[in-house]
Amino acid sequence: MEFFKRKQNYNFMSKSRYLLLLSLSLMAFSYFLLFTKGLNFGIDFAGGTVIQVQYEQEAPISKMREALNSYPVFEGSSITEFGSPEEVIIRVKTSSGELQRDLGDVVSEALQSTGNFEIRRVDMVGAKVGGELREKGVTSLLLVVIAILIYVSFRFEWRFALASIFALVHDITIVLGGLVLFEIEVNLDTLAALLTILGYSLNDTIIVFDRIREGLVKYKGIVLSHIIDESVSKTLSRTTLTSLTTFFVVLTLLLFGGEIIYSFAFTLLIGVIIGTYSSIFIASPTLIWFRFSVEGYRKMLAEREKREKEKARMRAMYEGGRL
C-alpha cells in the first residue's frame, strides 16, 4: 500500500507564505487567549485540593453544594461531574497543612446526609509547593529548548537550530492556546505532555532536516526552496505514517484511557496534529527566513573536509616519522 505518488515532488514552498501567515495568526490568537483568558491552572501549579467522590447512585450535585456551603473552607469551590453521573470532582481553592483533619475528612463529614458515597481520591498541594512546581515546570521547558538548540547546532548548523526552535515555539504556543480555548486543566501531566510534544515535533522536524542536509550535498542545484521541496516530499510518507500511528494511539488513550488521563491525552492530540503540520510546512521554510545559504553551507562543508584531510595528512606524516 502507498499513500503518495512516488515520483511526485510537491511544491510546498510556493504556498509557504500563506501557511506562515496562517501560523503567525494562530500564534497571535493563542497569545491573545493566553494573556486575556489565561491558562486554567490545576492544583499542581496553583495549589488547592481536589476531592473525587463516587456515589452509589447519581450524585446529588445541588444537595452536595448546599451541604458544603455551610462550611466556610469550601467558599469558591466547584463541583463537577467526572466521567459518569455517579462520580464528581470537588475543587477547592484552599489547602490545609493539617495532618489529622484534611479537607477530605471535612468533605466526608459534610456530605454525610447526601447518600452513600466513597471518597476515591484526595489530592492536596500547598501553595508553596505549587509555586515550586510551577518554577520547575518553566525551568524544565527552557532547559529542554536550550539542550536541543545546542545539539542541533552541533549536528547541523545554527540556522537549522533556530528554525527547529521556531517550530517548537510555534507548536507549544498553539497547543497552549488550544488548552485555553478548550478549558483544559493544566497540571503536571499536562506539562509532561507538552514536553513530549517538544520531543515529538522535534523528532519529526529533524527527520526532514536530515533529508535537507543530505540533499544539500547530493543535489547540484543551489535553490534552497527546491531542495526543501524535494526533501519534504521524500519524507512525506514517513511523516504521515508515523503521525498517523501516533495519532491512533493517542486517540485510543483519549477515548479509553479514563478521565484522569484525559487532559494528558488531549494535549498530546493537539500536539501531534500541530507538530506534524509544523514539521512539514513551517520548520523548513523558516530556514529561508533565517537566510540559510546553500553556497555558504557547502563552502563550510568543503572547508571542514579540507581541514579533516589536512589533519589526516599531518597524522600520516607524523606516523610516517617525517615530522
Binding site: Q52, Q54, S96, G97, E98, L99, D102, G104, E118, I119, R120, R121, V122, D123, M124, V125, G126, K128, V129, F248, V249, T252, L253, L255, F256, G257, G258, I260, I261
Partner: peptide, 27 residues
Amino acid sequence: YVLEKRSVGPSLGADSIRSATIALIGG
C-alpha cells in the same frame, strides 16, 4: 505539616489500570 498529599483509593487505581490497559492493547 502537609505540603502535598495525594491519596488514591484502591478501586480508583484498579479502574485506572483497566482503562490504561485497554488503551495500551487497543493502540
